[in-house]
Computed example of a mutant assay.
Amino acid sequence: MALTLDQIRTDVADCLGEDPADIPVDDNLVDWGLDSVRIMTLLGRWRREHGVQADFADLAEQPAIEAWAPLLGAGA
């Protein structure tokens, strides 16, 4: 099952202890407290559950949900 933009947002918010509606898709997630350990945790989950092939470096380079969506193969 492919990831969706909403699922990415929900997973990120869950990882950060925030409400998904509060996190804009174009915000830098580092500003929200996302660090490398959390990115690796999310990436591991998405690889297991959704077969994601993205690399950590790709996600760390542009830490925003809208930048991640195409890298993670997310549709609407």
Rank of each mutant, 00 (worst) to 15 (best):
D22N: 14
P70D: 07
R45W: 01
M40W: 00
H50N: 13
T41M: 07
D11F: 09
P20N: 11
E18S: 09
L16V: 08
D6Y: 04
W32A: 03
R38G: 01
D14S: 13
D6F: 06
R45P: 03
V12F: 02
V12R: 02
M1V: 12
W32E: 01
V52E: 07
V12E: 00
A76E: 15
Q7W: 03
G51W: 11
R48S: 13
M1W: 06
M40A: 15
A13T: 10
D55A: 15
T10M: 01
A13V: 00
P70F: 06
T4G: 11
A69Q: 09
I23H: 06
G73A: 04
T10L: 01
W68M: 03
T4P: 03
I8L: 15
T41G: 02
G51R: 07
D58H: 11
E49I: 02
M1N: 13
G75P: 00
E61W: 02
A13L: 07
G44W: 07
E61S: 14
Q7F: 00
G33E: 03
P63T: 10
A2Q: 14
L16A: 05
G17Y: 08
R45Q: 11
L43I: 05
D58T: 13
T4V: 04
V37H: 05
R45V: 08
T10Q: 13
W46D: 01
M1G: 14
W32I: 00
D35M: 02
Q53V: 14
P63Y: 10
Q62Y: 11
D14N: 14
A74D: 06
G33L: 02
T10F: 03
L29D: 03
M40L: 10
L42I: 06
D31I: 00
R48H: 10
A76K: 06
V30H: 09
G17L: 06
L5V: 12
A76Y: 00
G44A: 05
L29F: 09
V30A: 09
E66C: 11
F56K: 07
W68S: 02
N28Q: 08
E61C: 05
L5E: 09
L59M: 12
Q62R: 15
